[in-house]
Structure formats: C-alpha cells, structure tokens
C-alpha cells in the first residue's frame, strides 16, 4: 500500500475511533443522555465497552498482518488504535471519579464558574476516602486500575523518541504488557457482573483467540528457529 493511501486510511481510522466519543457528546447536547434512566451507568458502560473493543481491535492487527506479506502496512495502525484505547479508558476512569464516586459535579462546576477553581480539588478531597476504600477492598476495581496503569505506561512511552531512548528490545518487552492489560480488562468485566450473568463471554472469547494466535505463532517460530540451528551447527561438530 502506498504511503498516500496509508495517510488517507489513518484519517478514516481516526474518525472511526472518535465517532463513539462524538456520539456520546451529541447525546449529551441533545438531551437524550439525561433522559436515560441512569445516565452515569450508561456512560460507564459505554466508555468501558469501547475501551475494551478497541483494545481487542488493536490486538487483532498483528495476527491479521501475519496472514500475508502485503499487509505489512497494518503495523502502522497499532500505536494509533492503542492511544484511543487509552482515551476511552481515561474517560471510563473519569466517569468513575467524577460521576460515580459521589463527586459533587454541580458544586464543582458552580465553584469554577464563580472563579474558584480550587473547588474542583476540594470536592475531590471529599470523596477521596471512599475511592481509597474502593481500591483497597474491591478486586474488580484493583484489576481495572492495574489495566489502566499499564495503558498509561504504554501511552507515556509511545512517542518515537522514547522508543529510541529505551531501545527497541526494552520497548517491545514493556509493550507486550498490552496482553496483560487485555486480560485484566476482561477479568475486571467478569468480576463486575453478577454471578450467573455471562455478558462478558464474547469479548473474552475474542481475547482468547487473539492470544492463542500469538502463542501459536511464537511456538512455530521457535520450532523453525531450532530446526535451522540444528541444521547449521551440529554438522560442523560432527
């Protein structure tokens, strides 16, 4: 694929990744979000679902690329989609902090409008203990937070400069944590739903397939490499 085509495709992928967020914004503006029975619950699930779906889409890039040598250009989309995973995960976390945990948004906004930006912080301090409590006690929050910390680290190290500074090998080692983030996100989902509810099975099945493809690939590659060494070296020793 030509460079020019990749640029166009990048614009399209950017637009596609932004679409859910814009759609949510539109629902806020036209009032339909407020008419939802439980807007907070809706936003939480919406942002969480998209973070997870994009993560799976990101993990699908490499196995698809390996199908054929002509698909090499696809690798250039991995980082970009990954950054959108981070965006939706951040919105998900912000929903928890600002809308779910008891943070008094109207008071904070009123303070901000009246010229007291410190109110944002004051309100955060008020709910801080209950959030600490959540992190200490609730394993679904712990595993979700772990996934977020990984995404944060991957985002922070995503610029090319950082990659060069770290060295390719180290960078790749760190960025393999995306698998851990995917697993953690699925566990987060399973631990969140009630016993007997199987809603997360679809994303889990997709994740398992994507991880199995990688395991299969690296296994075959290792065997391939070993065969080659077997051919190359022992001949001389004999």
């Amino acid at each position: 694929m030509s460079n020019r085509a990749v640029v166009w495709l990048k614009i399209i992928v950017h637009a596609l990744c932004l679409l859910p967020a814009l759609w949510l914004l539109d629902q806020y503006h036209n009032g339909s979000l407020a008419m939802q029975a439980d807007p907070v619950n809706y936003i939480t699930h919406f942002t969480g679902d998209w973070a997870l779906w994009l993560l799976l889409a990101d993990l699908a890039i490499t196995p698809i690329r390996r199908l054929h040598t002509s698909l090499g250009w696809m690798v250039r989309f991995r980082r970009m989609v990954g950054l959108y995973v981070f965006l939706y995960a951040t919105l998900h976390l912000l929903t928890y902090v600002l809308l779910f945990s008891g943070y008094d948004m109207p008071a904070a906004v009123a303070g901000l409008r009246a010229g007291h930006p410190a109110e944002l912080w004051t309100q955060l301090k008020l709910i801080w203990p209950s959030m600490v409590d959540d992190v200490e006690k609730r394993r679904f929050i712990q595993v979700g937070l772990a996934a977020y910390v990984i995404l944060l680290a991957l985002t922070a190290t995503s610029p090319k400069r950082v990659m060069r500074a770290m060295g390719g090998k180290n960078w790749q080692r760190l960025h393999r944590l995306i698998y851990v983030a995917g697993i953690a996100a699925c566990i987060h989902y399973w631990w969140l739903v009630k016993a007997g509810v199987r809603t997360p099975w679809k994303v889990t099945a997709v994740l398992i397939v994507l991880l199995a493809l990688r395991l299969g690939y690296s296994f075959r590659k290792r065997i391939g490499v070993e065969k080659r060494t077997v051919r190359a070296e022992p001949l001389q020793e004999r």
Binding site: A34, P39, G102, D133
Partner: peptide, 19 residues
C-alpha cells in the same frame, strides 16, 4: 456488597446527567 459500598445510592429521579 463485596463489590461496592451500600452507604450511598444514586437516586434516579431527575433528568440530569449529574447523579
């Protein structure tokens, strides 16, 4: 509840996105 606090609740009786 093992997975969340029961000390507070989101009272769904308004048409606002702020809970």
């Amino acid at each position: 509840h093992p997975r969340w606090s029961q000390a507070h609740e989101r009272l769904l009786n308004t048409n606002s996105i702020f809970p």
